[in-house]
Amino acid sequence: MLRLVDVSHAYGDVVSLRRLSLELTAGEILCLLGPSGCGKTTLLRIIAGLERDYSGEIQLDGVDIRPVLAHERGFGLMFQDYALFPHLSARENIAYGLKRRGDNRRDIQRQVGDWLERVGLAGLGGRDVTALSGGQMQRVALARSLAPNPRLLMLDEPLGSLDAQLRDQLALELRTLLKAAGISAIYVTHDRREAYAIADRIAIMDAGSIQQCDSPRQLYHAPATGQVARFLGLRNLYSRADNAAIWKLAEQAGALRSDTQHILIHPRGISLGCPTAAPAIGYAATFLEAVFRGENWDICLRLEGDWQLTFSAREVPAQVGEPVRVFVALGCVLALAG
């Protein structure tokens, strides 16, 4: 549906996007996940038509949309700060795009009422938007961008300013709503939990380019580079400078390649007492510490050959300083390029 080819952009001397290519299929929710300043928002603004100085191609259903002005693209963008019009009520905000489209008054009234109900704001339409709570503002902004039935909806960190609990709840609601409307969406965030919850596919961005684009599950289980693994919060990532014992383990697992830069021991392959999957290698280890994380404990061990492993467990297996036996499934020893 949407296709970007070799898109590059710079703010003066600072390059924000480097020959970035990306595809989005109809009805798909794609998350752009990356640290602040990696070019996510710039990419959205280019797709929306708000940034004009870039090189590369952008096609919508095979048609080049570079000459099309922002107000003619029929795309929706939900801003990080919501950008609600402060002089208009919630209802008038939602109606804004419908009015510009030239819908008749009765239609607008009906659609706005519909949307208010769908986002759970029935009865609050007359409210001044400045008098709404953060969550309510987010819903008005969402309804406003969805009401004109955009061909593509872009969301720029739409839950960024909300507290963690509300963020989890709204992320789920958002996915349900987008899927029900069958809208293709690009969702920008720097929160991996939010990305996992909402996306069909996640594109990990760093320094203006896409490092990996896969389904959340695939991304988690097989990150392509050390940087992706780090960004996904995966621990037990080792570089060549680290202990030689780890590289020996990778060799035993048959994972090493010529371009290997990092070794990742995926947490799902680490277990105490007995192996989770065969083949596995057992190590004698010393229990270093356990950090309470609510549902789980973070367990840290020092292994023979003097290297460390960290993983989550439901129980604390031993006293600090006691010896334990740990198994690493060879299938979970990943060699990463880059």
């Binding site: 929306a48 038509g49 708000l50 922002a70 107000h71 003619e72 693209r73 029929g74 795309f75 929706g76 963008l77 801003f79 700060d81 950008a83 019009f85 804004y96 795009g97 510009r100 489209r101 406003r144 961008s145 004109p148």
Partner: peptide
Amino acid sequence: SLGEAAQLLGA
């Protein structure tokens, strides 16, 4: 962003 939002809503 207000002007941009209006623009994207077709203004």
